[in-house]
Every structure is written in C-alpha cells, then in structure tokens.
Design a protein around this nucleic acid. Structure first.
Lengths: 234, 234
DNA sequence: ATCGCTGAATTGTTGAACAATCCGACATTT
DNA sequence: AAATGTCGGATTGTTCAACAATTCAGCGAT
C-alpha cells in the first residue's frame, strides 16, 4: 500500500485520477472520501446488496469518526446506493421487483431526450470516441473495458444535452446499475452484441437523423431491460 | 404556537398534513424534520437565495445539535437547495446563468418521456383532476392555488411513468423552482395563460394522441423557459 | 405455539472539544 | 496610495464520549 496501513486512500488524487499535474485546490472532506471509498467498494462488488453496514465497524475500519461515516451514509442514501432503515441501520441497496424497469424508465427518459436534442460536434465526437473505445476493448476481449466503454457511450449521449443536472442523474443511475448488475458483467458476450448497435446509433446521430437515433436507442434500452430482467430472477 | 416556544413543529403530523387520523409508524428523525423545516422556509421564500446559513445559528434556533443540522444540510445539498462551500459554510442556492435552461432541460426530458408513455387511466384521471383544480383556483383568482395546481399538473404527468425515481427527481426539480421563482409566482396572470394549454395537453392525452401531447408539452416548456428567463435577468 | 419480558447491541442525538480554514482589519512595505 | 503581509476572531470540519431510544433475539410463562 502506498499510504497508511488501512483506511482511506490518497486524499488529493484518487485511484484512477492520475495524469493531471495540477493539484486540487480544496481537498475533499473526509466524509466525501469515505463516501468515495464505499462507492468504490460498492461498484467493485465487494459489498453485496443486502449487506448491513454498521457505523462503528466502518468507522474503525476506515479510521474515522462515527459521525463522519454517518454523513457519508447520507450521501450514499441520496444516491440510492444504500437504504436507511430507521433505528435498524443502513443496508446495501437491493433490487426489488420493479426496480429494473424503474431504472430503465429513467434511462429512456434522459438518454432519448438527450440524443433527440442533437448536441454539439464535440459532444457527438465524444460519443463516437466511446464507440471506438468499445471496439478496441472487444478486439482484446477485455470484458471489463467493454463494460466501461458502454457506460462511457451512454454517458456521452446524456452529455449531449449539456445539462449538469442530467449528468449527475445519469451518473447516479449508472452507479446503481454497477452495483446491481455487477455479476452480469462477467458474461463474456453480454455487451459484445451491443457494439454494432452502438455504432449504428452513433452513425444516425452523426448523420443528423435524430429521430431515428432516438428510436434505435429506445429499442436498445427496451431490449437491454428485458435482458437484465431475464438474468435476474423475475 | 401549538407545541414548544420555538423550533420544530409537530413531529408526527407535519403542518399541511392534517386530516389523516392514522399516525406514522416511524416518526421521522430529527435531522429529517430539520430538513423539512428548512425546505419549508426555502419554498416559502423566507430564505432568500444567497443567504448564508450558519450551523450554530440554526442549531440554536431549532433547538437541535449542530451535528444534526449538518445532516439536514447534507440532505438539502443533495437536492441542490443549498450549496456547500468547503470551510465557508452553506448558502441558499442561487440561480446561475444557465441554470434555468438546465432545469427545463430536465423537465423536458422526464415530462415529455412520461406523457409519451401514456400511463394508466387512473394516472390520466389525476392529470385531469389537476387541470380542474387549476380552473377552480382561477375562478376565485387564487394565485397561490393556481401555482400549486400547475405543479400538481406536471407532477401528475411525471407520475404517468409510474417510476419512483422519476417522481423524486421531479419533486426535487419542482422544489428548486419554488425556491428560485418564488417572486415570479406573485404575478397575477402568470399561470392563468397556461390553463387552457394544460387543458389542451390533457385532452390530447385522454384521446390517446400521445405524440401530439408530447409536442404540446415540449412547446409549453420551451415557452415557459423563455418566460422565466425574461423575468429573471439574462 | 403465542405472548410478553428482558438484555445486549446498534442507532439517533447531544454536547463539548480541538484543529483547520477563512475572512476582515490592521500594519507594513514599496 | 496600492499592494502585500500579518494577526485575531469566527466558523467549519472532525473527533470523542455519553446517553436515550429502538430493535432484535432469546427465554420463560401462560
């Protein structure tokens, strides 16, 4: 390990945030770093949905105060990554029956709306870049890379709208999906089939056929939802 | 005053929540009640955007601990009602240049998407009910009632999608707008012009002309945005 | 088997304390 | 006079210890 024996990672530069020589002016607060750490563990599948998170345990494990853990919990709860049961504790969020549909309803709303708005040339270029990123990952059979490329693709689509609020909503939704569908991402050809579809959507977008792109994207999300429902019970 | 000399209101039944004889099973936590109180003051325009909220002052004023106020702040910050400036304090959120467009971008995305999904007969009935509520308010020239009827209308539209997540997103957006546009709501004929338009949208929805309803709603939001931008600087 | 009790564990909340940080006022320098 | 440097007060960020409130599992009584 780089820093201490246990607890939080580098306050200034996170894990995957290398490269930028400029330092952050304001170091994120401890509570924020705790939230980041937990978010990381959640996304990485180290914390299985349904697990109970006791304040004292995490406080000691990360070497921070209980109150600070509490603040981090509040943040994660607002992102629906954990659920607070009053007087019972916080639990890693679990997927109820209708939640898959719910999540995809949000995605359909904001993604389709964003792509129908067109966006700037730079924005479209970012979408294209994500498609190419996916192709490269597929060429090396890098499943993890394929998954994140897919997320970049959809993130780039939402970014077309140029709305801070939509961006954060999307990032929350994607975080939820990472948590829930972590197991599914190990499937080899799970995303591979989407590659050509993403390309098609991107081409329609580049050609200015926005309605067409929107329809394709909508259909894509419908199919993706069905697939996820098939994988997980229901 | 009903309860104590100062501080929070009734823990069990809020202020506008009268009528229901059934008590809440789980009394909301103190932090939540603090958040509710602040939300109320924000929506009511008692707290002007840009105002600084010092923890100690609010803690004493509401008779709670500073840590509890902190938790409430975290919740409000996640809803963008207040902004945290590290080591400087939290301030009532202010409206930056592009934020009006940003908020309306979110609304266009989720409202149009929701109405294009159609929804259940009960959902459509709720939309119609909101339209009638607006007409009644207009008949009595109840501006405040007109404003809230309008919010009910748009809330009912989003509810068509039947998505918990979209509902909470919409409620946050509406809370933001209440905070920002509070002054504008005093304008007499601000919403009155929208009445017939809401009716038209609702009729299209009832007739199953979803695309048409979506277009009308989209145009409505565009115009509403332009109007708000005209009222507020920019 | 159901009900109620009891006790351990955890959460919710408080109050106090301290370091870190920011801000304004004042002093210094050029 | 303007820019710079320094200091002190005020507020936030964080920790710690304590206590009340609540949940839950186990146990015993009916």
């Amino acid at each position: 390990m780089a820093s201490s024996d246990e607890g939080l990672r580098d306050p200034v530069n996170g894990v995957g945030r290398g490269g930028s020589a400029r330092r952050r002016v304001a170091v994120p607060s401890v509570a924020e770093r705790v939230a980041d750490e937990l978010r990381y563990q959640l996304a990485e599948g180290m914390l299985v949905p349904g697990t109970r998170l006791t304040e004292a345990a995490i406080a000691e494990e990360l070497g921070v105060s209980r109150n600070t853990v509490r603040e981090a919990f509040a943040e994660l709860a607002s992102e629906r990554l954990v659920v607070r049961h009053p007087n019972r504790g916080v639990f890693v969020a679990t997927l109820e029956a209708g939640d898959i549909h719910d999540v995809y309803t949000v995605r359909r709303a904001i993604e389709v709306s964003a792509i129908r708005g067109g966006g700037t040339p730079e924005g479209i270029a970012a979408v294209r870049a994500a498609v190419e990123e996916g192709k490269r990952a597929a060429a090396v059979e890098d499943n993890e890379g394929l998954g994140s490329a897919n997320q970049h693709f959809h993130g780039a689509i939402v970014a077309l709208a140029g709305s801070r609020r939509l961006d954060t909503i999307m990032s929350h939704v994607l975080a939820e999906m990472r948590l829930f569908f972590h197991k599914a991402s190990v499937d080899a050809h799970f995303y591979s089939g989407y590659l050509t579809e993403n390309d098609e959507i991107c081409s329609a977008l580049e050609a200015g056929k926005l309605d067409r792109a929107g329809e394709l994207l909508h259909a894509y999300l419908d199919r993706s939802e069905a697939q996820q429902r098939a994988v997980h019970g229901e």
